[in-house]
Protein backbone atom coordinates (compact mmCIF):
# COMPACT_ATOMS: atom_id res chain seq x y z
CA UNK A 1 0.00 0.00 0.00
CA UNK A 2 1.06 3.55 -0.71
CA UNK A 3 -0.17 6.35 1.52
CA UNK A 4 1.17 9.88 1.78
CA UNK A 5 -0.16 12.88 3.64
CA UNK A 6 0.88 16.39 2.72
CA UNK A 7 -0.45 19.12 5.02
CA UNK A 8 0.23 21.76 2.42
CA UNK A 9 -1.80 20.43 -0.51
CA UNK A 10 -1.17 23.51 -2.58
CA UNK A 11 2.44 22.34 -3.07
CA UNK A 12 1.24 19.38 -5.13
CA UNK A 13 -1.25 21.58 -6.91
CA UNK A 14 1.56 23.97 -7.92
CA UNK A 15 3.74 21.07 -9.12
CA UNK A 16 1.00 19.76 -11.38
CA UNK A 17 0.22 23.24 -12.67
CA UNK A 18 3.91 23.58 -13.47
CA UNK A 19 4.11 20.48 -15.66
CA UNK A 20 0.63 20.03 -17.10
CA UNK A 21 1.29 21.96 -20.29
CA UNK A 22 4.50 20.06 -21.03
CA UNK A 23 3.44 16.48 -20.39
CA UNK A 24 0.13 14.74 -21.03
CA UNK A 25 0.70 11.53 -19.07
CA UNK A 26 3.29 10.92 -16.37
CA UNK A 27 4.38 8.10 -14.08
CA UNK A 28 4.66 8.67 -10.35
CA UNK A 29 7.49 6.37 -9.26
CA UNK A 30 6.92 5.73 -5.58
CA UNK A 31 9.41 4.08 -3.23
CA UNK A 32 10.32 4.29 0.45
CA UNK A 33 12.51 7.30 -0.44
CA UNK A 34 9.59 9.34 -1.76
CA UNK A 35 8.11 10.14 -5.14
CA UNK A 36 9.96 10.65 -8.40
CA UNK A 37 8.66 11.60 -11.78
CA UNK A 38 10.48 11.92 -15.06
CA UNK A 39 8.85 12.86 -18.34
CA UNK A 40 9.73 14.40 -21.68
CA UNK A 41 7.50 16.76 -23.60
CA UNK A 42 5.99 15.31 -26.77
CA UNK A 43 8.73 16.84 -28.96
CA UNK A 44 11.52 15.44 -26.74
CA UNK A 45 13.09 18.88 -26.44
CA UNK A 46 12.74 19.18 -22.68
CA UNK A 47 12.68 16.90 -19.68
CA UNK A 48 10.84 17.27 -16.36
CA UNK A 49 12.33 15.68 -13.28
CA UNK A 50 10.50 15.83 -9.97
CA UNK A 51 11.82 14.53 -6.68
CA UNK A 52 9.69 14.69 -3.57
CA UNK A 53 11.57 13.43 -0.55
CA UNK A 54 9.65 11.87 2.34
CA UNK A 55 10.51 14.98 4.45
CA UNK A 56 7.94 16.97 2.52
CA UNK A 57 5.16 14.65 3.75
CA UNK A 58 3.69 14.46 7.25
CA UNK A 59 3.17 10.76 6.74
CA UNK A 60 4.65 8.51 4.09
CA UNK A 61 4.26 4.81 3.60
CA UNK A 62 5.17 2.60 0.65
CA UNK A 63 5.15 -1.10 1.47
CA UNK A 64 6.63 -2.23 -1.80
CA UNK A 65 10.13 -1.60 -3.17
CA UNK A 66 8.54 0.51 -5.86
CA UNK A 67 5.17 1.34 -7.34
CA UNK A 68 4.44 3.04 -10.63
CA UNK A 69 1.31 5.12 -10.78
CA UNK A 70 0.38 6.37 -14.24
CA UNK A 71 -1.43 9.70 -14.17
CA UNK A 72 -3.17 11.72 -16.84
CA UNK A 73 -2.17 15.32 -16.21
CA UNK A 74 -5.42 16.83 -17.40
CA UNK A 75 -7.42 14.68 -14.99
CA UNK A 76 -5.03 15.35 -12.11
CA UNK A 77 -5.19 19.12 -12.53
CA UNK A 78 -8.97 18.82 -12.76
CA UNK A 79 -9.01 16.92 -9.47
CA UNK A 80 -6.74 19.48 -7.81
CA UNK A 81 -9.31 22.19 -8.53
CA UNK A 82 -11.13 20.54 -5.60
CA UNK A 83 -8.10 21.23 -3.40
CA UNK A 84 -8.36 24.50 -1.48
CA UNK A 85 -5.17 26.44 -0.75
CA UNK A 86 -5.17 25.43 2.92
CA UNK A 87 -6.27 21.84 2.39
CA UNK A 88 -4.21 18.85 3.30
CA UNK A 89 -3.95 16.05 0.73
CA UNK A 90 -3.84 12.34 1.31
CA UNK A 91 -2.89 10.03 -1.56
CA UNK A 92 -3.61 6.35 -1.25
CA UNK A 93 -3.20 3.37 -3.57
CA UNK A 94 -3.47 -0.37 -2.97
CA UNK A 95 -0.57 -2.57 -4.08
CA UNK A 96 -2.35 -3.99 -7.09
CA UNK A 97 -4.94 -1.23 -7.25
CA UNK A 98 -6.18 0.47 -10.36
CA UNK A 99 -6.86 3.81 -8.75
CA UNK A 100 -5.12 6.54 -6.80
CA UNK A 101 -7.37 8.09 -4.20
CA UNK A 102 -7.01 11.75 -3.31
CA UNK A 103 -8.56 13.13 -0.14
CA UNK A 104 -8.63 16.88 0.44
CA UNK A 105 -9.39 18.09 3.95
CA UNK A 106 -9.63 21.34 5.77
CA UNK A 107 -9.90 20.46 9.42
CA UNK A 108 -12.79 18.06 9.89
CA UNK A 109 -15.36 20.36 8.39
CA UNK A 110 -14.97 19.56 4.74
CA UNK A 111 -13.58 16.36 3.28
CA UNK A 112 -13.51 15.68 -0.48
CA UNK A 113 -12.40 12.42 -2.05
CA UNK A 114 -11.71 11.49 -5.62
CA UNK A 115 -10.55 8.16 -7.00
CA UNK A 116 -8.51 8.59 -10.16
CA UNK A 117 -8.23 5.69 -12.57
CA UNK A 118 -4.56 4.85 -13.16
CA UNK A 119 -3.07 4.49 -16.61
CA UNK A 120 -0.47 2.18 -18.04
CA UNK A 121 2.10 4.57 -19.45
CA UNK A 122 5.06 3.52 -21.52
CA UNK A 123 7.76 5.95 -20.56
CA UNK A 124 11.44 6.11 -21.31
CA UNK A 125 13.84 6.97 -18.55
CA UNK A 126 16.87 9.05 -19.33
CA UNK A 127 19.97 9.04 -17.19
CA UNK A 128 20.61 12.58 -15.97
CA UNK A 129 24.29 12.90 -15.10
CA UNK A 130 25.36 14.79 -11.99
CA UNK A 131 26.60 17.95 -13.57
CA UNK A 132 28.76 20.70 -12.22
CA UNK A 133 27.74 23.80 -14.12
CA UNK A 134 30.19 26.43 -15.36
CA UNK A 135 27.53 29.05 -14.61
CA UNK A 136 24.87 29.12 -11.96
CA UNK A 137 22.29 31.86 -11.68
CA UNK A 138 19.89 32.15 -8.77
CA UNK A 139 17.20 34.73 -9.35
CA UNK A 140 13.72 35.53 -8.02
CA UNK A 141 11.04 33.40 -9.73
CA UNK A 142 9.01 36.53 -10.42
CA UNK A 143 11.98 37.99 -12.31
CA UNK A 144 12.48 34.82 -14.36
CA UNK A 145 8.76 34.74 -15.17
CA UNK A 146 8.75 38.39 -16.19
CA UNK A 147 11.84 38.17 -18.41
CA UNK A 148 10.53 35.10 -20.30
CA UNK A 149 7.09 36.68 -20.75
CA UNK A 150 8.42 40.05 -21.90
CA UNK A 151 11.00 38.58 -24.28
CA UNK A 152 8.49 36.22 -25.91
CA UNK A 153 6.80 39.30 -27.36
CA UNK A 154 9.81 39.91 -29.61
CA UNK A 155 11.09 36.55 -30.76
CA UNK A 156 11.05 32.78 -30.44
CA UNK A 157 14.52 32.34 -29.01
CA UNK A 158 16.36 33.87 -26.12
CA UNK A 159 20.11 34.01 -25.63
CA UNK A 160 21.35 33.63 -22.07
CA UNK A 161 24.83 35.05 -21.69
CA UNK A 162 26.30 34.44 -18.30
CA UNK A 163 29.54 36.21 -17.39
CA UNK A 164 31.28 37.27 -14.20
CA UNK A 165 29.27 40.11 -12.69
CA UNK A 166 25.91 39.30 -14.22
CA UNK A 167 23.67 37.62 -16.75
CA UNK A 168 22.21 39.02 -19.97
CA UNK A 169 19.01 37.74 -21.54
CA UNK A 170 18.59 38.87 -25.13
CA UNK A 171 16.26 38.40 -28.04
CA UNK A 172 16.69 39.18 -31.72
CA UNK A 173 13.37 39.31 -33.52
CA UNK A 174 11.66 40.75 -36.57
CA UNK A 175 10.91 44.13 -34.99
CA UNK A 176 14.35 44.56 -33.47
CA UNK A 177 16.50 43.30 -30.66
CA UNK A 178 16.55 43.80 -26.95
CA UNK A 179 18.34 42.70 -23.83
CA UNK A 180 17.88 42.61 -20.09
CA UNK A 181 20.91 42.60 -17.83
CA UNK A 182 20.71 41.36 -14.26
CA UNK A 183 23.64 42.28 -12.07
CA UNK A 184 25.09 39.89 -9.49
CA UNK A 185 23.37 41.28 -6.40
CA UNK A 186 24.18 39.23 -3.31
CA UNK A 187 23.79 41.99 -0.73
CA UNK A 188 20.19 43.03 -1.17
CA UNK A 189 17.13 41.73 0.66
CA UNK A 190 16.44 38.06 0.05
CA UNK A 191 13.53 38.44 -2.36
CA UNK A 192 15.55 40.62 -4.75
CA UNK A 193 18.79 38.61 -4.60
CA UNK A 194 20.50 37.63 -7.84
CA UNK A 195 23.48 35.35 -7.45
CA UNK A 196 25.61 34.77 -10.52
CA UNK A 197 28.42 32.25 -10.05
CA UNK A 198 30.72 31.83 -13.02
CA UNK A 199 33.71 29.54 -13.52
CA UNK A 200 33.77 30.20 -17.22
CA UNK A 201 31.36 32.36 -19.20
CA UNK A 202 28.65 30.55 -21.18
CA UNK A 203 26.34 31.83 -23.91
CA UNK A 204 23.50 29.66 -25.21
CA UNK A 205 20.24 30.02 -27.16
CA UNK A 206 16.94 28.53 -26.01
CA UNK A 207 13.35 28.35 -27.25
CA UNK A 208 11.24 30.86 -25.30
CA UNK A 209 8.15 28.69 -25.60
CA UNK A 210 9.75 26.16 -23.24
CA UNK A 211 11.32 28.73 -20.92
CA UNK A 212 7.85 30.24 -20.54
CA UNK A 213 6.35 26.85 -19.85
CA UNK A 214 8.84 26.26 -17.02
CA UNK A 215 7.84 29.63 -15.54
CA UNK A 216 4.47 28.10 -14.67
CA UNK A 217 6.24 26.38 -11.78
CA UNK A 218 7.23 29.77 -10.34
CA UNK A 219 4.65 29.71 -7.50
CA UNK A 220 6.53 26.72 -6.02
CA UNK A 221 9.41 28.76 -4.64
CA UNK A 222 10.78 32.28 -4.29
CA UNK A 223 13.93 31.60 -6.29
CA UNK A 224 14.78 29.62 -9.38
CA UNK A 225 18.25 28.32 -10.22
CA UNK A 226 19.63 28.14 -13.72
CA UNK A 227 22.61 25.92 -14.55
CA UNK A 228 24.49 26.45 -17.80
CA UNK A 229 27.26 24.57 -19.55
CA UNK A 230 28.45 24.94 -23.12
CA UNK A 231 26.56 22.70 -25.53
CA UNK A 232 24.51 20.95 -22.87
CA UNK A 233 20.90 21.32 -21.71
CA UNK A 234 19.95 24.23 -19.48
CA UNK A 235 18.82 23.22 -16.00
CA UNK A 236 15.97 25.23 -14.47
CA UNK A 237 15.47 24.18 -10.87
CA UNK A 238 12.74 25.06 -8.40
CA UNK A 239 13.40 23.75 -4.88
CA UNK A 240 10.20 22.87 -3.06
CA UNK A 241 9.47 25.82 -0.75
CA UNK A 242 13.08 26.89 -1.45
CA UNK A 243 14.37 23.90 0.52
CA UNK A 244 16.41 21.37 -1.47
CA UNK A 245 15.98 18.89 1.39
CA UNK A 246 12.25 18.62 0.59
CA UNK A 247 12.87 17.96 -3.09
CA UNK A 248 12.87 19.82 -6.35
CA UNK A 249 11.16 20.26 -9.67
CA UNK A 250 13.76 20.49 -12.43
CA UNK A 251 13.39 21.18 -16.10
CA UNK A 252 16.09 20.49 -18.68
CA UNK A 253 16.01 22.19 -22.04
CA UNK A 254 18.14 21.25 -25.04
CA UNK A 255 19.93 24.26 -26.50
CA UNK A 256 19.48 25.60 -29.99
CA UNK A 257 22.41 24.66 -32.18
CA UNK A 258 23.77 27.54 -34.23
CA UNK A 259 24.32 26.75 -37.89
Amino acid sequence: MFEAVLSNGSTLKKIFEGIKDLCTDVNFDVSSEGIKLQAMDSSHVSLVSLELHTDVFEQFRCDRDSMTLGLNMKSVTQIFKICGNDDSVTMRAEDEGETLEFTFEKGEDRVSTFELKLMDIDSEHLGIPDTEYQCNVKLPCSEYQRICRDMAGFGDNMTIDCQKGGVTFSVDGEVGKGKIFLKHQPNVEEKHKVIVTVKEGVELDFALRYLNNFAKAAPLSDHVQLGLNSDTPLSVRFDIEDKATLGSLKFFLAPKIKE
Binding site: M40, H44, G127, A207, P233, A254, P255, K256, K258, E259
Partner: peptide, 14 residues
Amino acid sequence: AANQSSITNFFQRK
Protein backbone atom coordinates in the same frame (compact mmCIF):
# COMPACT_ATOMS: atom_id res chain seq x y z
CA ALA B 1 19.42 30.48 -37.87
CA ALA B 2 19.41 27.89 -35.12
CA ASN B 3 18.16 24.34 -34.95
CA GLN B 4 16.41 22.85 -32.00
CA SER B 5 18.24 19.84 -30.64
CA SER B 6 16.57 16.99 -28.79
CA ILE B 7 17.11 16.29 -25.11
CA THR B 8 17.80 12.65 -26.01
CA ASN B 9 20.99 13.79 -27.77
CA PHE B 10 22.39 14.75 -24.37
CA PHE B 11 20.97 12.29 -21.86
CA GLN B 12 21.35 8.56 -22.46
CA ARG B 13 18.29 6.33 -22.55
CA LYS B 14 18.32 3.98 -19.58
